[in-house]
Nucleic acid binder design. Structure first.
Length: 483
RNA sequence: GGUCGGGUGGCCGAGUGGCUAGGCAGAGGUCUGCAAAACCUUUUACAGCGGUUCGAAUCCGCUCCUGACCUCCA
């Protein structure tokens, strides 16, 4: 298996440090407002990666943090705390904000059928670990305190290490393009970033530390929590591409400065979801909320789309490509998703024959694994699954045959990839009761058809269509599915 | 300005040198009481110009367009 590593900008063979164990850390959300669809894409992408690693038999420890402290409005190390600001606006405690949006985040990800991470640590729950790490960074000479605030000395660090290894930029360029230090600045270098920030009196989220009553800078939490749960060096560190230049660059520097080791061997970055070619983001005001998508309550949408249709839409693009969001594209995915799932449902009804006609199951299986082994190429995997889908339909129509052994293999293959790896699920409330009801309705209609009472049979068919149930007349039987 | 990406048929989106993904939409057909679904067949591509090569969407150069990051953001 190969994975694309941002560190080297190439696909590399994936070799875990301690197989069969894999340590995976993904930067989670900052829970001061609703997650939008762009955020969801990243977590769905890593869900695919997590699921495939599990499928291959790796014992994965998947750590995804919740950032619930340390983010400030605006840049630099000043400005209001995002949680405190939101709390003021909503007239809640900061921790009520954290709880509210954490629950919302979990609800949304559950709808998208993502597996929960093994550990979901919070920044506020790991203040002491962050303080310890800062102490060590200072001890190692890469951090300094000024008036209760601790900064990371980027210029000193970059004399010994490649600070911008992730983005390949020259330090001089970074310096040129970073705002000059102002008269009130207390840090030494303009690239220096805060590890610990002394709280102003109005800053209500604060903790005691050796330097001041304050709060951690926003990069240190991931370094502290990843090393706590995955060790000083682990396999994969992931996150959205937008985090690479600043957040991940600083994480690497912190870990090097503290532990003298680069934290992760493979850095994986997921690309952005765009709307009309522009990145979806809260600040742009073009962020879709999952709820708007599911209900269709948005000017750009014709109707609501189910979470699984949206998941499928995302899986149809590779995680490192931008994906453009539009009503038209969603509609296409929705139909494709239903087609795939319909054929998966048909698998149970297939009858085995003596031989399998013109279909190489082993080849299909190899292609599926090859697709995923090539940096988790889900769109290619889906293309392969649609080949299987066509074959399944063809067998169901009696135009192809499948042997009993191949049928078992095909069921296993489709089950593995559609449900376990891609994480798609059947939708709708097709309960046992409903199945029995439909059986009854279909048998009544079949009786009408048998007596050529087409008025009645069409009435039933049309009425069902109106409530979103589609009947499909086969030669021998009638099947149904939700629209 | 710097760094890194993109520009693929009506739409979305794979594909890094030859074997012309896939989904949706369009056209024709089979099946059907009629439909739908399904199946079969099928049309429209690789931003532009030049170069390398027996052969390029794929490699190289130039041009144009466009995105992300460089300040909080998955």
């Amino acid at each position: 298996m190969v994975v694309y590593n941002t560190l080297t900008r190439t696909k590399e063979a994936f070799e875990p440090l301690n197989p069969p164990f894999v340590g995976l850390y993904v930067c989670g959300p900052t829970v001061y407002s609703d997650v939008h669809l762009g955020n969801c894409r990243t977590f769905i992408s890593f869900d695919l990666i997590y699921r495939y690693l599990l499928h291959l038999g790796y014992k994965v420890r998947y750590v995804r943090n919740i950032t619930d402290a340390g983010h400030l409005e605006g840049d630099r190390d000043e400005g209001e705390d995002k949680f405190a600001k939101k709390a003021r606006l909503e007239q809640l405690e900061p921790m009520e904000i954290v709880q509210k949006y954490t629950l919302g985040f979990h609800d949304v990800l559950r709808l998208f059928n993502t597996l929960p991470p093994s550990i979901e640590p919070t920044a506020t729950g790991h203040i002491s670990e962050q303080i310890e790490m800062i102490k060590q960074i200072i001890k190692n000479g890469y951090g300094y305190e000024v008036n209760g605030t601790v900064y990371f000395d980027v210029e000193k660090y970059s004399k010994e290490y490649n600070y911008s290894i992730l983005t390949n930029r020259q330090l001089e360029d970074l310096l040129e393009n970073t705002r000059a230090l102002g008269g009130q600045d207390e840090k030494r270098g303009r690239l220096d970033f805060a590890l610990w920030i002394k709280a102003k009196p109005e800053h209500i989220m604060n903790w005691p530390s050796p330097w001041s009553v304050g709060f951690p800078g926003w990069h240190i939490e991931c370094s502290a929590m990843s090393s706590k749960y995955l060790g000083e060096q682990f396999d994969i560190h992931g996150g959205g591409m937008d985090l690479a230049a600043t957040h991940h660059t600083n994480e690497i520097a912190q870990s090097q400065a503290c532990n003298h080791t680069t934290p992760a061997r493979y850095w994986m970055h997921t690309n952005m979801l765009t709307v009309n070619g522009t990145r979806m983001s809260k600040s742009m005001g073009n962020g879709f909320l999952p709820g708007e998508l599911f209900t269709g309550n948005h000017p750009l949408l014709n109707h609501g789309y189910s979470p699984m249709a949206v998941r499928f839409f995302m899986l149809q693009a590779h995680y490192r490509s931008t994906l453009d969001f539009s009503n038209e594209a969603l509609e296409a995915s929705e139909k494709g998703f239903r087609r795939l799932m319909a054929s998966v449902t048909l698998l149970d009804k297939l009858k085995a024959s003596e031989t399998t006609s013109e279909f190489n199951l082993a080849e299909l299986s190899d292609s599926c694994y090859a697709a995923m082994n090539d940096d988790f190429n889900s769109p290619v995997l889906l293309a392969e699954l649609f080949e299987a889908s066509r074959f399944i339909n063809s067998v169901y129509d009696g135009k192809s045959t499948i042997s009993s052994a191949d049928l078992d293999s095909l069921r296993k293959l489709m089950n593995d990839f559609v449900f376990d790896v891609l994480g798609l699920t059947e939708e709708g409330n097709q309960t046992e009761d409903m199945g029995k009801l439909m059986e009854l309705i279909i048998s009544l209609r079949s009786e009408a058809k048998a007596t050529k009472d087409y008025a009645t049979s069409d009435k039933i068919r049309n009425a069902l269509q109106a409530i979103g149930i589609q009947l499909k007349d086969n030669k021998e039987e009638t099947s149904w599915s939700k629209l």
